[in-house]
Nucleic acid binder design. Structure first.
Lengths: 191, 191
DNA sequence: GTCTATAAATTGATAGAC
DNA sequence: GTCTATCAATTTATAGAC
């Protein structure tokens, strides 16, 4: 029995595309590259998506939806700001790992097209919400006084986001190790 | 008197190219894009460089040379590891800002070509040197016990590197503000 | 859902004049 | 140092058959 050749739907195609886009960059990946990796032809790919840019757009939305969902969790809404912040940090790291290819894609987007611009806008909205949490936690006196909320948010989430560059699930480093290391640094900011 | 049109040499061309490569990505920038931005033709650009990839290579070397030079500074070689580490952190941030377009370029490279691979190799060498400093500072008992040197190095320098995404000189945030905020986080790791 | 064939535009790069 | 003209290869995308 010859092994049945992989057949794709939009979902499975997207999974491969996000991975390749992340490895070589979106602009550095041609539809021909994608055809080689998937083992189907360019034409077949166009059966599943209208354009290369649509493939990107779907991937970006997936990452953004997962990130925004963190704010809808109960622990993001109740309690002291510093605890809500710790929860958002923890869950952001977990979402980043769970949706690694899509979040990687998001973090590499430059705004070259309308699709990319839209994603950047949504991402800025997310950043603003996190920044408000930092501001509140500092105002509560639970983080060191004198910290700049905007600057601190950028550094802490820049740190978190940078993990897409090297972290891979099923390495010796578990997600909990990663969350722990990030929270250790955040907790260094407590008064 | 009509204003004399800009004339380029390799240096001034590189400055523009690094900027545009950073904004749109290397693969997302065509020679035609570069021609439009510089106001000269593609042919004229090829008078200054042999290829688009050479333009990238020169920019990457500029960033890497500046970063490695930090380790040759006296303060990187004398004293306790934790103090040498703080100096490398401070100076890396300063170099990053001083050579912002070139360092941005470096941090976006994916390894798609031999030129990019070479740059990634040099960058890994830099990371290893920093990691050794973290390990030494932890062994000295000057950073919290239990910190993983490799993980901590990745997070802290991921944080530093992420600043290329948003920091711009001559904003209200001075380089010293930025260095201060980064060192505040690093100092949160001291025992 | 996948294929072959092909179009239309863009891309990196060169030749040779001023 | 810059230009016009041009090329060969690649790129995104479509038409139509199986």
């Amino acid at each position: 029995m010859t092994p049945a050749r992989q057949r794709y739907d939009q979902e499975s195609l997207l999974a491969v595309a996000a991975q390749v886009f992340t490895e070589r960059g979106y602009d550095g990946t041609s539809m021909e590259d994608l055809a080689k990796v998937t083992g189907i032809t360019k034409s077949s790919i166009y059966h599943h998506v209208q354009s290369k840019e649509e493939l990107l757009g779907i991937g970006l939305d997936r990452a953004l939806d997962a990130l925004f969902a963190v704010f809808d969790e109960p622990a993001s809404m109740d309690g002291k700001a510093v605890e809500r912040l710790r929860h958002v940090v923890r869950r952001t790291v977990e979402v980043l790992v769970a949706e690694l290819p899509y979040v990687s894609l998001l973090l590499r987007v430059r705004g070259n097209t309308a699709t990319e611009q839209r994603a950047l806008d949504r991402r800025r909205t997310f950043d603003r919400a996190v920044r408000a949490l930092f501001a509140e936690a500092i105002a509560d006196g639970d983080l060191r006084a004198g910290l700049d909320p905007a600057l601190t948010e950028r550094l802490v989430f820049g740190m978190i986001n940078s993990t897409v560059e090297w972290y891979r699930p099923r390495s010796e480093i578990t997600v909990d190790d990663l969350v722990g290391a990030v929270l250790a640094i955040v907790d260094g900011l407590r008064r």
